[in-house]
Nucleic acid binder design. Structure first.
Lengths: 179, 179
DNA sequence: AACACCATGTAATCAGTTACATGATTAT
DNA sequence: ATAATCATGTAACTGATTACATGGTGTT
């Protein structure tokens, strides 16, 4: 039972779902490809944590709808009481910033512009999600609300930093030697 | 040449260093164990991107001091012009928050308290680093300043969120059914 | 006496990505 | 026509962690 397995159980504690949809839904929280999800679900099923029923479709491929079992719910509840791993972030941009004096200002600015656009997309996605949830009945769980807010806090800080960093880079270019 | 390899070259573009110290210094930006660093350095050396000289020590074990070559610097400069991968964050806490209704409020609060302490430690580390750099001569490069600021922006947002989330959880507990 | 730090390396395993494989439906 | 979406799966590979291995110095 690794973290991704618990992540799948966590999603399934809200609603039964197919492997395909679980793969799409877990992306923002724990990126994983279908080639990792499908074997894990089979493993969780052989361990008795989930079960599936085949749903035959005519217009689309048949699918397996997985649901969490009592054993799965108990495992999930126990996991909540265990110590939580520290977050891990890996960002190539950070490594590039570290040696940015080796490159041209134009390249660095281009990199930051691309990242700015990425964060803006993220923020827009979060805010559209927020609207969707606001109109939803029943209203979303506290957990969902906390996660949306966490994303918004993070992305807004990242956005602010990127804009600040771009100004610094431009200022640094204009005044390379302050005599 | 993977991202960690470029990360090592990035550190070495500032100063020559041992594998052991590179391992320690890269932790905040790209977590990696010594068992991953040492073989990569050997690989970078066989590719001509770095070279090492043995430094014999009496009180401590001998060490290899690696320095970047011209080929390494060129590779680094070219890397700066290439498209940058999007950042990847994996946080077990996020997956736990998603299914928090399955657990006790006390367990969730304990989890958030632990995370709060972690972010506070991070912030303190960043601010002590900042002081160290402020007294340093020569003053740190623009890259270093940008990274310190990025860390501070992120951690402060995370801290704010954690405190806000704890208040939400407490409020939710007191008023579970708002009739 | 037991543990942490310095310093390097390899072996085994686990986690994650890319590629291979299939095939119908719908949109551009 | 070409590509994207839905839907599942396996195989090969790369990336990352844990464990094995050694050994002196300094700290509690």
């Amino acid at each position: 039972m690794n973290t991704l397995s618990y992540g799948l159980l966590s999603l399934l504690s809200h609603a039964a779902d197919s492997g395909y949809d679980l793969m799409l839904k877990i992306q923002p929280f724990w990126p994983a490809k279908h080639s990792q999800i499908y074997p894990l679900l089979a493993q969780l099923e052989s361990g008795g944590y989930v079960q599936h029923k085949l749903v035959v479709q005519t217009d689309k491929p048949d699918k397996k709808i997985y649901s969490i079992t009592d054993k799965g719910l108990n495992a999930l509840r126990n996991w909540l009481t265990l110590p939580t791993d520290e977050p891990v972030t890996r960002d190539e941009l950070v490594l590039k910033i570290f040696c940015m004096e080796q490159g041209d200002t134009a390249d660095i600015l281009h990199m930051l512009e691309t990242r700015l656009a990425y964060y803006q997309d993220q923020l827009q996605w979060l805010q559209s999600k927020k609207e969707t949830y606001a109109q939803l009945n029943p209203s979303p769980s506290l957990g969902i609300i906390l996660l949306m807010q966490k994303g918004e806090f993070s992305v807004k800080a990242d956005l602010e930093w990127t804009q600040w960093a771009m100004r610094q880079v431009i200022a640094h270019e204009k005044e390379p030697n302050p005599d």
